[in-house]
Structures are given as C-alpha cells and as structure tokens.
Amino acid sequence: MAEYIVHVIIENKPGISDPEGDTILNDLILKGSFSNVTKVRSAQMLKFTIKAKDKNTAKSQVQKICDDLRIYNPMVSKISLNIES
C-alpha cells in the first residue's frame, strides 16, 4: 500500500462570521494599502498521512474519519480535501 498525504481544510460556512479573517482584512491588509483585496476567510488545515491502496481510497477514508470523529462541526464548518502531489 502506498502512503498519501491528504490536506483537510476546515473553514466556516459562508453564512458564519469569521472575525479572524475580518480582522486580517480590515486591520492589516486594507491598512497596508492593498485595496483590491475584498475578502479574507481564515481556515484550519490538517495534513493526514495515510496508507491506502489508491488516492481515492485515501481521500474517502479521511472524509470518513472527519465525519465520524467530528473533526469539523457540520453545523458551522465545511471541509475540503486535497491530495498532496
């Protein structure tokens, strides 16, 4: 079995406020005269190194882990998974 690295990005759903992203935008980026930035959303990333027979299996197993163990809270957060190439 090969080893894959799966990136899990956990971020708040669109309707949920993100005071950290707002602060980075309003108090750092916009004050730094980068006025073309319109939005910043903060997120948390976990890197899973997992043994699996192929990429898709690795990804679906990590998805299951995230769902079963509430790695993210589905009421407020969503996750996106990417395989590190």
Binding site: P19, T23, V76
Partner: peptide, 10 residues
C-alpha cells in the same frame, strides 16, 4: 444542541 465559536472580539 449548538456550537461555541470564538468570541467576536477574538
């Protein structure tokens, strides 16, 4: 039910 998020003030 529910969830506890970071305070608005951070």
């Amino acid at each position: 039910p529910g969830v506890l998020l970071k305070n608005n003030s951070l």
